[in-house]
Lab assay of single mutants.
Amino acid sequence: MASQGTKRSYEQMETDGERQNATEIRASVGKMIDGIGRFYIQMCTELKLSDYEGRLIQNSLTIERMVLSAFDERRNKYLEEHPSAGKDPKKTGGPIYKRVDRKWMRELVLYDKEEIRRIWRQANNGDDATAGLTHMMIWHSNLNDTTYQRTRALVRTGMDPRMCSLMQGSTLPRRSGAAGAAVKGVGTMVMELIRMIKRGINDRNFWRGENGRKTRSAYERMCNILKGKFQTAAQRAMMDQVRESRNPGNAEIEDLIFLARSALILRGSVAHKSCLPACVYGPAVASGYDFEKEGYSLVGIDPFKLLQNSQVYSLIRPNENPAHKSQLVWMACNSAAFEDLRVLSFIRGTKVSPRGKLSTRGVQIASNENMDAMESSTLELRSRYWAIRTRSGGNTNQQRASAGQISVQPAFSVQRNLPFDKPTIMAAFTGNTEGRTSDMRAEIIRMMEGAKPEEMSFQGRGVFELSDERAANPIVPSFDMSNEGSYFFGDNAEEYDN
């Protein structure tokens, strides 16, 4: 993207840094990872977990959730003011799984939030270390993106479920800051804005008074975040219109849905970061690795190297396929839920299948599930090659597409044709070009129609051997075009429920 120079890199967003050079960025990201790792080690000690239990991804998720809940100030305040039966607002906890007599047992633990905050700050040299908290939120978000298709949420806001490739980060909490905003897809931002506008339509006082002023500035800020994701002048001009509207209503909703559809071809720039579970960072720190000293990046080879040398386990339900569970977590670790499966298959070195073909449910185990038949197995999170994460949407291309997802959002900077089903997408653009945004709409449609099938995206960008740390010898991959490109292809993934 041309304006790259004016933006802070995501590592800076990730670490609240002012302008830093590459070495400083690597050190501050490393410091953040160190903090998460030290916190995780301490929690495993508190909970008396064995090494194996500490490497269980379900335990990692519970521990991450506990610290996120302990620092969720708004919710904590709300819980104190609106006490609900049987919930102690000062405590947080969740299921911890232990191996007892050759069987997995679930144990519900409860801790004072104050105590968890103390352990977290102690692991982070006394700081609140917001960057580390956001990092864990993005890992949870990436896992949700890989596990669930947001059909219901899309339909509720009037969008087409086939636009799911635009929904990265749709389950990120509001408090995820600049680093969170960077990884949100165009569809996620559109959905947040539509929800806001709908509230304004239904509630006369939404934009009024002292609160209304705050609401208005939040609305304009979200519009600017979305505008910054678009790469064409016409899309940005249309966002200006939406932002400046005196009284946002149905016309703005129409414009936003139009823009979301246009992003299936004229893709937005959305950041991709490899955020790993805390149970990967903990053992690495415990083994003596100093992330701050060595430096770390979320968008280069580092996460690949770390996963190459990590042992992570997962509980497996009786009829689940461990290899499929591994694929789910591998995609989440690489922030690749909406990437082209052919690119992923090449990088991973084994075939990556669409969601609907995987015999696996989510990673988390519900409290009512029976533990008797639970097994555990090693997650295979290694890769054959590594590639640089991208934040450009890439230019655009036609490809055989599917009944489910009709476009992709690249996660890796790797040369390819970008699949999208042009006739299906263009069919949504018939007729409606009147109104105050008509010239911009016409211009956007013209650009979409001009998108050429034979153009290559990320020209000359390749993948790298894991021994090639400096990215000196790019390998331009070859793809098996007979395979499906979309992950949520004609899909039956479970729906995400809060």
Rank of each mutant, 00 (worst) to 15 (best):
S486Y: 11
R199K: 11
S413R: 12
S84N: 15
A442L: 13
P83H: 08
N321G: 06
F304W: 01
M13N: 10
E469A: 10
G17N: 04
G249T: 05
S314M: 03
E339Y: 03
A373L: 09
M1Y: 10
G187D: 10
Y40D: 14
V186N: 10
P89F: 13
Y313G: 11
R236P: 11
I265P: 14
F230C: 13
P410G: 06
K422S: 11
W386R: 06
E443N: 09
E455R: 12
G30P: 04
D491L: 02
V352L: 14
R317W: 09
A427Q: 12
G349F: 13
Y78D: 04
L358C: 09
M137T: 10
W139K: 08
V186E: 05
V408M: 15
K351M: 05
M426P: 01
R384F: 08
R213G: 05
R221M: 10
R8M: 04
F291S: 14
V329Q: 03
E454H: 05
M1R: 09
V183L: 06
N21D: 03
S467I: 13
Y78A: 09
R118D: 06
R117T: 11
S170A: 10
A131D: 02
A472F: 13
R391L: 01
R75N: 09
E465I: 00
F429Q: 01
S335F: 05
D88H: 03
I225S: 12
W386A: 06
G450Q: 01
A70Y: 11
A2Q: 00
F346I: 09
G362N: 09
M189C: 14
S407R: 11
E469H: 08
L298Q: 08
S69F: 04
W120I: 09
T157N: 06
L259P: 02
A401V: 01
M374N: 10
R261H: 07
N205P: 03
P248A: 15
Q235I: 06
S377M: 15
D240E: 11
E252T: 00
R75L: 00
G288K: 10
I33L: 15
L328Y: 06
A472K: 05
S60G: 15
R156I: 07
T147H: 11
A123G: 15
S170F: 12
S69P: 11
R261K: 15
P322S: 11
P89I: 04
M32V: 14
A233I: 05
M426C: 15
V312Q: 13
G249Y: 03
A471N: 01
Y487P: 03
N370C: 10
E455L: 14
